[in-house]
Nucleic acid binder design. Structure first.
Lengths: 330, 330
DNA sequence: TTGTAGGCGTTATCAA
DNA sequence: TTGATAACGCCTACAA
């Protein structure tokens, strides 16, 4: 059973292709009689319209691009799932790519999506492709930054109050009396990492503590960098009594590191930006910033629909939506 | 900057569209002179070919469909990532859908992919859409079942030895002297669940134990069903001393349930089909079947390329690849 | 109520 | 070495 074209269906049903199209798209008049005959033929030949051709003709694809740094991070996947769920209700589909936190791959993903004429792009970017993202906008494709800012790109954006939440998280540690804190930062250039670092600084300053007294570790948001940080901190003559970790994966790595070194998991008081879903099982000295990736995803999806919906695309009415996560102590 | 067409580029460069196409596709002869002029114009106009049109003309899309039941389950995402990584090297892209473990959504995803003329479909199916999957094959689209069988579908398939691994896992419990075991099964109809249940039966029989003496719980592979199972087992007059759980999420739920009930996490000796990446942090009475989703994904991707590559599509040379996972005791 | 025909943006065949 | 031109499969004025 090869794929059948609309022409063949038309021939078999003894009508014109226009009629087939009208029946299938419920557009224009067509007699009940003919309608049934067409539908029956369609069924018999198992006709399935070629979306590629339709997209070319209609100049719309009903596809939305989604680019995220890591498929394996539950935070992003919870976000992605929500985007997909909402868009699929409106019959939009997702072209999804995992950039692997690699700017070059991100770039080529954007190119691919552009060539495939996605109708909107949602991206948690690596911050290195501002030019590409501006190109997306220039081509009239609504761009929605999510989770992360990108320098030199003016766009709709949905993020968290990273700075504020990080500040509150560190304040929590300070209030408990900790004076020597390990700070696990994310990679410079990623806005979430930068803003969380600012938040940390702010908290320290307000508490009258000197940043120089802290142990700063520059990680890359990966599990292994958290693990490495744990090792290094543990080796110090005067190890910190508490740790702030800038994302969920590094926090996980931190605990893995402790375990490997044979230390108890409550060796440090920990404040984590981002949740470990399994933390309730073992953590008793952990506070975390509870993010809401579903809310981010949902908001993004709604914004996509609004932008695609074709409201006026004037400039200056860009949305900047900032969600405020709360902090949970275990 | 609206999207520019090949015609406009041709006009601007003072050549025909054919020449532009030849330059861009490096097909056919074109003088160095003209080539440079064309490339320069392309750059200036920021021309980006329309893949939709190209796909229509070439009758291939370079897209492969991937349908999995749950984006949030790390097992599937590790698999997905590997598929994507390998295919993207060969310039194939992925149309990815999360079926949400819902047969109807799975069905409509398949339809969408069919209309978009994917060149192959990789699916961990819900087992209810055999007819659809056969349609996929009938249309000449290579079908690769992954992780799960589907009744009444003959196809390339890449799975694990679910039965054998489950049997070994339960044997482990029996060998440790457990005589009353809680068995958390997955939903009937999903081949992995069914085969794992068979493995359990086999292990019990060989050990001369009566299945009737065990506590059977029929879950749905979800976290919450594991949690519920924990509650029910705990309520029994004579609770089991060990538990076998048929997948990672239910195992997680099991531990969450214990925690909620204020029980220690080593309350039961546990054997889990599937890994909990965070288990090292707290589990001391856990054995698990270590699956290898990356291997599944890699194998699937290679098979896709082979099938697309257009080797003869005779019948009877279907691949059935069975991976044998090992069992890890913590 | 239905049919004809042009065109969406490419690629590829054939001439020139 | 290049240029017309006919598809690819569908939709949609415009006619009838």
């Amino acid at each position: 059973m090869r794929n059948v074209t609309i022409k063949e269906v038309a021939q078999a049903a003894g009508v014109s292709t226009a009629t087939i199209s009208r029946v299938l798209n419920k557009s224009g008049y067509v007699s009940e009689d003919v309608r049934h005959r067409v539908l029956e033929t369609v069924r018999q030949l198992n006709y399935r319209p070629n979306a590629v051709a339709r997209n070319l003709k209609r100049e719309r694809t009903h596809c939305v691009g989604l680019i995220l740094p890591d498929m394996r991070n539950p935070y992003f996947m919870r976000l992605a799932r929500e985007v997909q769920a909402l868009l699929s209700v409106r019959n939009y589909h997702i072209l999804y790519t995992d950039s692997g936190a690699d700017a070059a791959r991100e770039r080529s993903a954007i190119n691919f999506m552009l060539e495939n004429r996605i109708e909107a792009l949602v991206i948690a970017g690596m911050g290195k492709n501002a030019d590409k993202l501006r190109e997306v906008q220039d081509r009239g494709v609504p761009l929605i930054l999510i989770d992360r800012r990108v320098n030199n790109v003016e766009s709709d954006i949905i993020i968290e109050d990273n700075r504020g939440a990080a500040e509150r998280a560190v304040k929590l540690l300070v209030d408990k009396g900790h004076r020597k804190i390990g700070i696990l930062c994310g990679p410079a250039g990623i806005s979430t990492a930068d803003e969380r670092r600012e938040g940390v600084q702010a908290a320290l300053e307000r508490a009258g503590l000197s940043p120089a007294d802290m142990f700063w570790y520059s990680g890359d948001f990966s599990r292994s960098s958290g693990r490495e940080a744990a090792r290094q901190m543990h080796r110090l003559l005067e190890p910190p009594t508490a740790v702030f970790s800038a994302n969920n994966e590094m926090t996980f790595g931190l605990y893995l590191g402790l375990k490997e070194m044979g230390q108890p998991l409550d060796f440090w008081e920990v404040a984590s930006y981002g949740e470990l879903e399994f933390a309730p099982l073992f953590a008793n000295r952990l506070a975390y910033v509870r993010q809401n990736p579903e809310a981010l995803g949902r908001t993004a999806a709604e914004l996509v629909l609004e932008r695609i919906g074709g409201a006026d695309r004037g400039i200056g009415l860009l949305e900047q939506i900032v969600l405020t996560p709360d902090i949970v102590c275990m």
